[in-house]
């Protein structure tokens, strides 16, 4: 089944806010062997002016990928996850994510482009805080290999 191009423009909103916990931020930073004190030690984060532990630069993907999974796993999307490779990723932060944030997401299917048997699917996930203010935009491009590929 080809990727369903009629999904372009479709939006998926998170049902529940995502609560960013300090232990999760520590574990994510530790996965890179990173020792940045602002990710692990509340006093170090406060010294930089933050209310809580600061997220690693790519942490927003953990939240965004849940929104992406909802779209990709929608059978009508026509995306076979077995044939997907990650093409591009982009983060634009309006402010850093910090421990205690409650983040809601809205995914937009930005484009579906088929070319030479490969389909490129681009999604944009807007992350917002409990006050409805924008936190980050995560743009992700997936490349879906064709049936014969």
């Amino acid at each position: 089944m080809p990727v369903n191009s009629s999904f372009v423009g479709r939006r998926y909103r998170s049902a529940e806010p995502y609560l960013v916990g300090p232990d999760e931020l520590r574990a994510f930073a530790a996965a890179f062997g990173a020792s940045a004190p602002a990710c692990c030690d509340p006093a170090a984060a406060q010294a930089l002016g933050y209310a809580g532990l600061v997220a690693a630069p790519t942490y927003a993907v953990v939240i965004a990928q849940q929104a992406e999974a909802e779209y990709v796993r929608d059978p009508a999307s026509g995306i076979d996850f077995e044939r997907v490779v990650h093409g591009e990723e982009s983060f634009r932060h309006h402010r850093p994510i910090v421990a205690g944030d409650r983040i809601t997401t809205e995914l937009t299917v930005a484009s579906v482009v088929e070319r030479r048997g490969m389909t490129t699917v681009t999604t944009a996930v807007q992350l917002s805080d409990a006050a409805g203010q924008p936190v980050a935009t995560v743009t992700s491009t997936l490349v879906v290999r064709g049936e014969a590929g």
Binding site: A38, V54, P57, T58, H93
Partner: peptide, 12 residues
């Protein structure tokens, strides 16, 4: 400061 990284883009 991890929050200093305002934009970050890559192609795999």
């Amino acid at each position: 400061d991890p929050g200093a990284i305002r934009e970050y883009t890559v192609r795999f």
